[in-house]
Structures are given as structure tokens and as C-alpha cells.
Design a protein around this nucleic acid. Structure first.
Lengths: 157, 157
DNA sequence: TACTGATCATCAGTATAAATATTATATCAA
DNA sequence: TTGATATAATATTTATACTGATGATCAGTA
């Protein structure tokens, strides 16, 4: 019989569950209304002006279908704008709005606090060690998920 | 600016994403139709005959509401049965069916394989170390999530 | 030009996850 | 026993995540 509670699968789910809860808690404490995924998408967009949805999804290892909904919600909050690309009429060019940029700046300390919170049971050294091992595991198993992480925007062959 | 890709939050999401994908892949390869959550619920039920939904949810650190849907799907697959408790007519007593028990037995090697897959980037020693650190982090931050893990079924005050 | 294959976005469907409200039932305290 | 409180399950809403399919468009080629 498998010892469920010590499997990487079960621990992965718990860790993610705690990560989301910590994020929500801190961000709400700051008076913001933003989910973890929305934050990551917006923060990444801030660094990649004019990127399209599929490329953004690839950058943060998200499914492109899921990303559509995330973008919708960010757009309706006025945090980004979306327009059809001149170069490629299939693609939507995304751009962060001034409101989005301002939100990112104000929310950052709360996000940082949440990151610390979820590792509160570990020493500084242990925390660093955990992130290193986790990073190595992710790199090794990256291709297993539908939305593997790509180092940069997908190449045109 | 936060380095998103090395935050515990982002890594937690990726790790969970890969865990689910590895599980689906192996389980499908074995010809089964079961999600990770459904598996954990069923395997835990096998060890706790006659438990009610809320207690099962608490045992595996799941939200009560979410568990309702999971149970529904397991019931419709004929893997468990549900009846109103004699002791407490609010509660539904759950019991794994013979079909459920048989499925658990047959699916186990595939589940085990998935657990190995998601750590394929690590050596045996590193994998053990990662699980230890992850366990310690979870214990320290357990109370942050809405569905904290409880050692046993919730106590009656 | 017409064809082929790939890509971008979207849609429908299923499942997980949590928050909130409601209903039914228990339990405790006055 | 009654009234307050707690709990079990359900329903509803919002958000994430993936599968498979479709339509529009693009790039390269015959």
C-alpha cells in the first residue's frame, strides 16, 4: 500500500494549496483583488510589451485556453488592453495599462510577504535548498505537462 | 522586481501541474479513468470504512464542498456507496465497493510509476531530501490553507 | 494560384478548488 | 423543552486547468 501522505503528488497538491491561500490572504490584507495566476500574467506582461496570448502563456507555463480567461478578467479590471496585431491578424497584442503598472508596484510587498509565509517552517538555508531541489525536479519533468515552460517566446521555424 | 520564476508560489504551481500530468499519463496508459483527487479519496476511504464526507475531506486536506463533487463522480462510477448514517442523519456514510477495491489494487503500480516520474530529474538522495523539506514546509504552513490537514477525524467538543 | 501544415484564439465539456448561502439535523445550555 | 449554536451536505458563483474541436490566418511550397 502506498503511503499517500508522503508521495510527491500529494505533497505537491498541498504545497500549491498553501501557496494560493498565503497569496490570497496577504493580497486581501492589502486590499487588492487579484489571484496568483492573474498576478504572474500581469507581472510577466509588464516585462514583455506587446506580446500575444499564446506567447505569454508559454512564458509562464500556462495552458493557452486557461490564459484566455485570465486575460479576459484582467482586461475587464482595466489592467491590460488587447488589440488585434497588425503583423498577424490571428494574434492579440497585449499591453499593460498605467493602472496595471501601478497595481503591480503597490502589490509587490504583499506578494513578497506571501512567498515568505509559505516557507515559514523552514530556516533560510533549508528554504534555499528546497527551492534548488524543486527547480531541478521541475527542469527534469518539464515536458510531462501540457504547458511546458519555454525559455523564451516560441521560435518560428 | 520579484524574480517570479524562483518564487515558491510559482514553483508550487508548476510542481502540482506536473504531478497531475504525470498521474494522468500513467493512469491512462494503464487504461484507467481516475483523477488524482479521486484516487486519493478512494484510497483513503479504503482505510476508513464508514467514514462521512466531511471527515474524509479533513483527512486528505480537501475542502468539504469540493469533496462532494468528487464523491458524486466516484459513486456514479460504482466505486463507492453512500448511505445516510443511523447515528447522525445529517451525515452520509461512505463505503468502498468491491469494484473500488479491485480498481485500487490494479491501479497501484501505475500510480507508483507516476510518483517516480515526477522526480525523474533528481537522484534518490535528492528526491528523499526534497520530500523531507517539503514535508517540513507543509507542517509549518499547514494552518494557512482553508482545508488544513488534521491528524484524524475532527473531534467533537 | 491552390494546397499543406502550423499557429492563434476561442468554444464546449469535465474536473478541481474555494467562498458563500441554504437547508436539515444535532447538540448544548438555560 | 426551548432556543442558540454547531455541523453535514448541497447549491451557487468564480477561477483555474486541461482535452478536443473549430475557424481564421499565416508561411511555405508545388
Amino acid at each position: 500500500m502506498i503511503d499517500l501522505f508522503n508521495t510527491p503528488g500529494h505533497m505537491a497538491r498541498r504545497f500549491q494549496q498553501i501557496a494560493v491561500a498565503a497569496f490570497q490572504l496577504e493580497v486581501e490584507r492589502g486590499g487588492f483583488d487579484l489571484t496568483p495566476v492573474q498576478y504572474v500574467a500581469l507581472a510577466t506582461l509588464a516585462l514583455h510589451k506587446g506580446i500575444d496570448q499564446a506567447s505569454l502563456a508559454a512564458l509562464i507555463a500556462h495552458d493557452r485556453t486557461t490564459m484566455g480567461g485570465v486575460i479576459d478578467r484582467l482586461e475587464s479590471k482595466g489592467l491590460l488592453s488587447r488589440r488585434i496585431s497588425d503583423q498577424d491578424r490571428r494574434a492579440r497584442e497585449l499591453e499593460i495599462t498605467p493602472a496595471g503598472r501601478q497595481l503591480l508596484k503597490k502589490i509587490e510587498p504583499y506578494v513578497q510577504k506571501a512567498q515568505d509565509d509559505m516557507l515559514c517552517g523552514l530556516s533560510k538555508t533549508e528554504a534555499r535548498h528546497l527551492l534548488t531541489l524543486l527547480g531541478k525536479a521541475l527542469a527534469g519533468a518539464n515536458d510531462l505537462s501540457r504547458a511546458p515552460l519555454k525559455a523564451s517566446a516560441p521560435m518560428r521555424k
